[in-house]
Structure formats: structure tokens, C-alpha cells
């Protein structure tokens, strides 16, 4: 399935998801579940976090991680938004943050705001431009310190200087 990046690029997903019972492949970039850490990986290492983990309270070493995948089992389940924020801000994670599961183009703005970089599009129901348009639909937000600039664009503009 195609991967959408925050800059609007569509690419192929080259990461290998490894099940909990499977051995790691001899080479390649791999994604394992959080429970398998610590682990020596053949290439770059990514982890997948289930959405009921209190990420901010985890003793997670993010330094060796190149990718963290967060799950949206349903588009109505918003836990991964708070997990993303905690990874970025409480754990200072700066690698790639990816959303997977039941995603809708209409939610991409929210996802970008809390720090997601890439989106695992598990459906071809929507034309590609629907996804890329959605990245630009909402440009103004009120929320303090969520974005990577550390400030709400609206609050910053109001109190510039």
C-alpha cells in the first residue's frame, strides 16, 4: 500500500513489519512491536505501539529508533493523537512518526498538527489528490506549543514581538 508523506509525496513502503512470532529478516529496515525491545536489528529499527499505552510514562529509549508507528483502529479512536504528542514533547522523539489503521483524509490536519510525518494509506477508496488537498485544508490553529515551531500560528501572530 502507498505511503503518503507530510510534504505530499507518495512513495512505496519499504519497511518490513515483523510479527511477534517471526524471526527478523537478515537484512532490511524492520518494524517490531514495542514488547520486543531491546533488540539488535539488521537495518534501521522501527516500533509499533498499541494505542492503549501511556506513552508519556514509558521508559522508552527513543534514540535508536528511526520509525514509530501509531495505530488508529477506528477513525473515532483518538488516543494515538495524544501518544504522538507525548512522543514528540515528553520523550523528545525526532524520528519518523507514522499513522496506520483506519485513516480518513479529513483527519490529516489533526495528525500533522501533533507531529505525524507519514500515513499508511490502507485504502484506495479516495483519489490521491483528496489526501494531498487535506494536508493543506486547515492552516490556522489555536493550540499552544503543539506544532514543531512550538507555538500556535494564531497566538504567535497575535502576539508577535
Amino acid at each position: 500500500m502507498p505511503l503518503l508523506e507530510r510534504n505530499g509525496q507518495i512513495s512505496d513502503d519499504l519497511w518490513i513489519a515483523v510479527g511477534d512470532d517471526e524471526d527478523l529478516p537478515a537484512q532490511g529496515d524492520t518494524i517490531v512491536s514495542y514488547g520486543r525491545l531491546p533488540l539488535d536489528a539488521p537495518g534501521r529499527l522501527g516500533i509499533s505501539l498499541s494505542n492503549d499505552l501511556d506513552v508519556g510514562g514509558l521508559d522508552l529509549q527513543v534514540d535508536g529508533l528511526s520509525l514509530i508507528v501509531l495505530n488508529f483502529p477506528s477513525f473515532a479512536d483518538g488516543r494515538a493523537y495524544s501518544q504522538a504528542r507525548a512522543l514528540r514533547q515528553d520523550l523528545d522523539y525526532s524520528g519518523e512518526l507514522r499513522a496506520t489503521g483506519h485513516l480518513l483524509p479529513d483527519q490529516l490536519g489533526f495528525m500533522v498538527e501533533v507531529g505525524f510525518d507519514s500515513f499508511d494509506l490502507q485504502t484506495d477508496r479516495f483519489p490521491v489528490e483528496r489526501w494531498t488537498e487535506a494536508l493543506e485544508a486547515v492552516t490556522l490553529t489555536y493550540h499552544r506549543h503543539l506544532s514543531r515551531t512550538g507555538q500556535s500560528p494564531i497566538i504567535a501572530a497575535r502576539h508577535a514581538g
Binding site: 477513525f75 473515532a76 479512536d77 483518538g78 493523537y81 495524544s82 504528542r85 490536519g109 489533526f110 495528525m111 498538527e113 501533533v114 486547515v138 490553529t141 489555536y142 493550540h143 499552544r144 503543539l146 494564531i154
Partner: peptide
């Protein structure tokens, strides 16, 4: 009101 408007963390509670 402003802070809670389309807050990404709190729109799918």
C-alpha cells in the same frame, strides 16, 4: 472556546 476548537488531541475523545 478557541483553545478547544478542532484540538487534534481532543476531537476524538
Amino acid at each position: 472556546r478557541q483553545w478547544s476548537s478542532l484540538h487534534p488531541e481532543f476531537s476524538f475523545l
